[in-house]
Design a protein around this nucleic acid. Structure first.
Length: 242
DNA sequence: CGCTTTTGACCGGCGC
DNA sequence: GCGCCGGTCAAAAGCG
């Protein structure tokens, strides 16, 4: 359903960030058919910090929400600072719930684990185990193995931003202190375990918080046999990491 | 017919 | 130890 819902004209500038790529301006590659990207020094910090960065976009202008915010390098407390700082201007702070901070704290422990070169699951079983019994055991592992996350704030009438990837919705949940349900998506690419959450601010239903978790193992549209899009990938690996 | 979305249930983590 | 809450699962329904 997603991937094409947004008219290009009203697309918020959503750029592919390379959380693990080298901190270079080349990290910022505009997605196919999207706006030229501004220089975002903050992203370079993000590249080093791996996760927790937040941006705001207003139909084309993507900018750091809080310049100089402390990234979540390791401690959960740092994450809380980040998210708390994010919340006040908008009142709700859904993206900065304790759970988000909690997850970020897990990321801190996870980053090293994932850096070891292993995925938590088989390459083709990123969303479920083979057996229910085994799943129970894996569930805990999966929760521990959190991926780096990026949080974007965009202003849009549609929930799902066309970021060049194809997503499948796997859940929706009403979260506390939010008038709008949170939607959970997974990348449909077979080997890709990237997830994203989409939710709207209670105080401003036009503001959409999109949180990406993990890194794409493929280029945008690569699973759609869209070769042209693949050509947009900056280099071979920089753009693939999101 | 295959894929996606919906939705209620379940599970684990965390705070009290 | 208990309850709350976020995140995920999985069956059913919907859609192209």
């Amino acid at each position: 359903m997603e991937g094409g819902q947004l008219e290009t004209a009203c697309l918020p500038a959503l750029y592919a960030l390379g959380p693990y790529a080298q901190p270079s301006p080349s990290l910022l590659a505009p997605l196919p058919g999207q706006h030229k990207l501004p220089q975002l020094p903050l992203v370079q910090e993000q590249a080093a910090g791996n996760h927790g960065v937040m941006f705001s976009s207003d139909h084309g202008c993507l900018y750091p929400l809080l310049p100089g915010i402390p990234f979540c390098h390791s401690a959960a407390s740092a994450c809380e600072k980040t998210t708390a700082g994010f919340a006040p201007p908008f009142g709700a702070g859904e993206a900065g719930t304790s759970a988000a901070a909690k997850a970020d704290s897990e990321i801190a422990a996870t980053t090293a684990a994932t850096g070891a070169g292993t995925t938590c699951h088989g390459p083709n079983s990123w969303w479920k185990g083979s057996a229910a019994a085994a799943e129970k055991g894996k569930m805990k592992v999966r929760r521990k193995m959190r991926e780096p996350r990026f949080c974007f704030q965009t202003r849009s009438d549609v929930d799902v931003l066309d970021d060049g990837y194809k997503w499948r919705k796997y859940g929706q949940k009403v979260v506390k202190n939010s008038l709008h349900p949170r939607s959970y998506y997974r990348c449909t690419h077979s080997n890709c375990r990237v997830k994203k959450r989409v939710e709207r601010l209670s105080e401003d239903c036009r503001m959409v918080i999109t949180t990406y978790e993990g890194r794409h193992t493929h280029t945008p549209f690569s699973d759609d046999a869209n070769g042209a899009a693949g050509d947009h990938a900056a280099g071979s690996c920089t753009f693939t990491s999101f």
